[in-house]
Nucleic acid binder design. Sequence first.
DNA 1: CGAAGTCAGAATTTCGACAAAATCTCTCCC
DNA 2: GGGAGAGATTTTGTCGAAATTCTGACTTCG
Lengths: 230, 230
Amino acid sequence: MSQAASSEGRDPTLATAVHRRLREDILSGRLAPGLKLKLRDLAESYGAGASPMREALSKLAAEGLAERLEHRGFRVAAAAPSQLEGLIRSRVLAECAALQESIRLGDAAWEDALVLAEHRLNRLARSLDSHRFATNPEWEACHLRFHQALLEACGAPQLLAFCDRLREEARRYRALANTVAYPDRDVAAEHAAIARAALDRDAETAAALLAQHYERTGAFVGADLGRRAG
Amino acid sequence: MSQAASSEGRDPTLATAVHRRLREDILSGRLAPGLKLKLRDLAESYGAGASPMREALSKLAAEGLAERLEHRGFRVAAAAPSQLEGLIRSRVLAECAALQESIRLGDAAWEDALVLAEHRLNRLARSLDSHRFATNPEWEACHLRFHQALLEACGAPQLLAFCDRLREEARRYRALANTVAYPDRDVAAEHAAIARAALDRDAETAAALLAQHYERTGAFVGADLGRRAG
DNA sequence: CGAAGTCAGAATTTCGACAAAATCTCTCCC
DNA sequence: GGGAGAGATTTTGTCGAAATTCTGACTTCG
């Protein structure tokens, strides 16, 4: 009757369902970097044949979340601290460029959306528990929306898609490091400062603040990752 | 006996071979944008089964060169003038950011490689025929290398890979427009100016020149594309 | 004792057939 | 004459098995 019968399981095809699940398993860190992905085991584990599984893996490889070795199957993409550095730099460069262009081109609607996104983000608690950190899915969603809203007026769809992908890869590193990311750091203030600079059309400051925002998180994650993997 | 028996046909797997051929057919414009890609026809045409073909298509879809419609197969990705605009903007933003960082971080080896790449490019003729334009594959290869050399020191592998992808998509639009790209325009001088600014560590000027370089080409292509497709 | 060659075992890749979904066509009814 | 609906056709998505390739251990030779 209703269009969205169930929030889960409404995947039109098995391959896409497997792709989504596998992707989430890699991003959340449940599948360790470098892990060999044996087709037979996966097929059994996810309850699908070889064809959809292979298609999902192929897609993941194209996205950079898996690695393909011809005639030797697939592996979960590596995730070394040294690679994290390059990822952060890519993110900073791409997002700062998009942000500056967004500030240059953004109209009133962009400003409205940005203000709204920040307000919604501030209304929520970052942690579900005030004593120890417990991810708040709603906050995460609003956080994503806020950062997207910042860049959205840049008029470069491919670049935005690229930023989304880097964001996801960064999420993977965060999950791998298991960084609590709840240090003495006023994230809300950082967001407010970035939004303020953007709304003031101060591209230089906004970009610098955004870069700091990412580099700081990156440093935490990198430290934690390095400590645990030598 | 020799490691590289033949320059062609050394594809380890059928799926990758088909992927490469299909990719080239899309990039070169032989397969029109929006064209329906029927699995059976393709399989027959490329001499492969459904499995490798499907895998190749899936990969192309992830790269953005094909479009997937669940339960309705694949199509060649659209290519409208309006999308070209966004592509150019993405390219300019991404490459300028990479170039500026490259100029900031580049060492002596980077300078050497850049000088070398420009020299090799200048040694070749852009057209094989001096009367009417005929693509010179060697020049194209050196041109690619030159632009890669510019960005290579930025230390952001993902961003570089992204730039490569955008470059390919741009090549597709050029092929579709069939732009002769041989107008009264001193491309060599433009390259020289960009290289000079980069070697002088003048990031602002270099980025501005690079942006002009792309926007100018984009304008030509867009005009030709718009004229032909309404 | 070390290195190259060889041979089973395991895994990936590919093929052909089956099932499910979408598109098309033709008919029937308003 | 036009639109809706049922059936046939085409096309996609999936499965299980065959063919090719890689891995690892054992043997043999220098």
